[in-house]
Amino acid sequence: MSPIFLSRVGCLLGLIIFPFFADQFYIQFVSKVLIMAILASSLNLLVGYTGLVSLGHAAFYGLAGYALAIATTQYAITGFWINLFVSLTVTSILGFFIGALVVRTRGIYFIMVTLAFAQLLFFIFHDTDIAGGSDGVYIYNIPQVTFFGYNALNLSNPTEFYFLSLITFILVIFSIDRITKSLFGQVISGIKINESRVESLGFQAKYYKLTCFVISSFIAALAGFLAALQFGLVNPDMLGWHMSGGALVMVLLGGMGTLFGPTVGALVMLTLELILQSLTNHWQIFVGSIVILVAIFLPNGIVSALRLPYK
């Protein structure tokens, strides 16, 4: 029983019993932290492990939310699993096409092109009446999780929603851990360090980057699907580049290329925002300054700086 294993079990137990003692507000807050942690972890696969800096990752997060909103309101699709399937499939297919284009570019171009494609989606939802224009859409009928005909979870209840987020979060962290420790994970880490050397070993870097991009958009879609369920509302800001920028800040703040770094980043960032918002209307000055200071003084993130056992 290593201390790392014990600390993880401790955290997990804490997360499981927490909602039985906490206020509804904090249950919802931690659900939000878990969802943002999923989004940041998916971005970490690209930024931290593969070295591809995407500034348009919110596109997939937002699109998954929109897929849910459109399916429930315009096509009256009410089942949870069918909605989940549709949302993830649509987003992954788009992730494939955008990915196929963007992995052709590198460096600064990659950053700008991912940003531009996210903005393309933003404007499609913002400027047309596909789904409520700039106001977005309310999701009135939140689908209920059924399991072989039984109603398993009532998602309108914050505690039951919390457990859905927690289960998803654990599955995502577990999958990312497996992915990064597999041969695939070795190759993408290799791409980050020296792409031409990886190529010379016989791996086609382009296909590995594309696969990673699609996996990453799939996980981001999970986060977007949950976020749309939690708030019962989607709007173009979900796809906007401030969302992408925020996720990138979480990855770097927590520690990129580490398993739990993005989670720590999401927790710290959202807690900071919560505190600052209650103190001042101009809280963004402080958030912005903190981001600048982190970029200067904490390039490897909190996890590495504190030598936390969360690698």
Binding site: I108, I111, L252, G288, V294, I296, P299
Partner: peptide
């Protein structure tokens, strides 16, 4: 510094300037 930190720092600057 690398592009990632440039992106972050100038993103932070946007938030500060906007406020």
């Amino acid at each position: 510094v690398d592009h990632l930190r440039q992106v972050l720092m100038t993103y932070g600057l946007i938030l500060v300037i906007d406020s």
